[in-house]
Amino acid sequence: MTKTLLFLSVLISGFTFAQDDLLKDIDTIQTKNTDTSQPAFKALQIVTGQSTKLPAKKEWYIIVAHRFGDVSKGFKDFFGLDDASTKLGVIYGATEWLSLNLSRETNQKTFEGGVKYRLARQNDNFPVDLVGYNVLAVNTELSKDNYPHIRFADRLSYLSQALISRRFNDNFSLQLTPSYIHKNLYEPAIEDKDQFLAGLGGRYKISKRVSINAEYFVNFDSHSFYKNPLSVGMDIETGGHVFQLLFTNSQINSDIGYLTNATGKWKKGQIFFGFNLYRVF
């Protein structure tokens, strides 16, 4: 475990160089904490799940998300460092209220395209931020050797979410995330074609540039083989970057895979270390 901690320290220090302060909008002290210029979250994701934050108009984000293997396997797999899944993505702020994203993950070789749109802002007259999020995913790993009659439509999955957050004060924010997922191809013995989830996530700022985040999703699929995703993390603003360190029981980075294919058990130490790195242009 000592080698893992050493790796973390080196990883963090590699990104701590000064550039523009991306998070000045949430670090500026205001007389009213309901000021709409201050988002509830500093990053576009709480941990792996989406937050109500959107890019500014004409902003481009490059995202690198990495999840190592199961830390409970110990030194044999170097505490998970030998087994990793990576997602690369781009996000574009089309308007002040609309963003578009495209990503590809190594696990299941999944491509995802998404749209995120603000419906309402928290202010003195409205208690929450309300954002919609929709995703179309394509699983390109499915082969005709295993599925001889597979069609392109069978590779598709869909996600719809309502992101409802409230910034209670300068330090604390909370979000509810009701979600619906539909899979065209699924295994009836271990999951449902249509799945409904309810998520709860939050952020607590412990210093000007650091916050502790957590999120948990309950999947109401009664006979699902998979576990409910539970993740905890830390947001670090390093100047020019938003860097997130995290531990989770779901190794998959894609939105749909994360929510419906978690395999780890926290009680048994079956967790995955990872990070999200954002670069804005």
Rank of each mutant, 00 (worst) to 15 (best):
E187G: 06
G132A: 13
K24D: 00
I29P: 06
V210F: 12
S160F: 10
L81F: 14
D124A: 15
I91G: 07
K116P: 08
Y61D: 04
I63Q: 03
S157E: 05
Y204D: 13
V64G: 08
I181T: 10
L11G: 05
S9Y: 14
T95N: 09
F217W: 10
N261S: 14
K208I: 06
S254L: 06
T28G: 02
S254N: 12
Q122H: 03
D70F: 05
P55W: 06
G202Q: 01
F172W: 07
D255N: 03
A137V: 03
V128A: 11
F273S: 01
G114R: 01
Q244Y: 01
Q244W: 07
V64H: 09
K227M: 11
K268M: 06
K193Y: 11
K53D: 00
T106L: 13
Y186E: 05
L163M: 11
R167M: 05
N171E: 14
D83Q: 14
R151C: 12
G240I: 04
Q270L: 11
W97C: 05
I26L: 08
F41Y: 01
S160M: 09
Q19T: 12
A65K: 08
R167V: 02
T36W: 12
N139V: 06
E96C: 06
F196H: 03
G69R: 04
V47Y: 00
K42I: 02
N249L: 09
E105K: 06
A84G: 12
G49K: 00
K268P: 04
A56F: 13
M234S: 03
G269D: 04
L6W: 08
V138E: 08
T263Q: 15
T34E: 09
D83P: 09
Y278N: 05
G114C: 00
T140Q: 08
P188D: 11
S224N: 04
F275K: 01
F111Y: 14
G132L: 10
Y226A: 05
E187C: 03
G14H: 14
L22F: 07
A18M: 14
Q108E: 08
F79K: 00
Y186R: 07
V71M: 11
Q251Y: 12
F275A: 06
N169S: 07
L230W: 12
D21W: 12
G201W: 01
L197F: 07
F152S: 09
K42D: 10
L5H: 05
L176G: 02
K183E: 02
R167T: 00
P39A: 00
T248L: 11
D170N: 13
F243W: 06
R121S: 12
V10A: 15
K193E: 15
L98M: 15
E59M: 11
N139G: 05
Q122P: 01
L142H: 04
I271Q: 01
K144Q: 14
A18H: 13
K268S: 14
G49R: 08
F168G: 00
A189G: 07
D154K: 00
V135M: 09
F79Y: 11
P55G: 04
R167S: 09
S211V: 04
L6I: 08
V64T: 12
S173C: 10
N184C: 11
N139W: 10
G269N: 06
F243C: 02
D21V: 05
S207D: 13
S13M: 12
L54R: 03
F152T: 05
F41A: 00
D25C: 10
T34G: 12
Y226S: 07
F75R: 11
E59T: 13
S37C: 11
T177Q: 10
G113N: 08
T2R: 08
R67L: 09
D145N: 13
V210G: 14
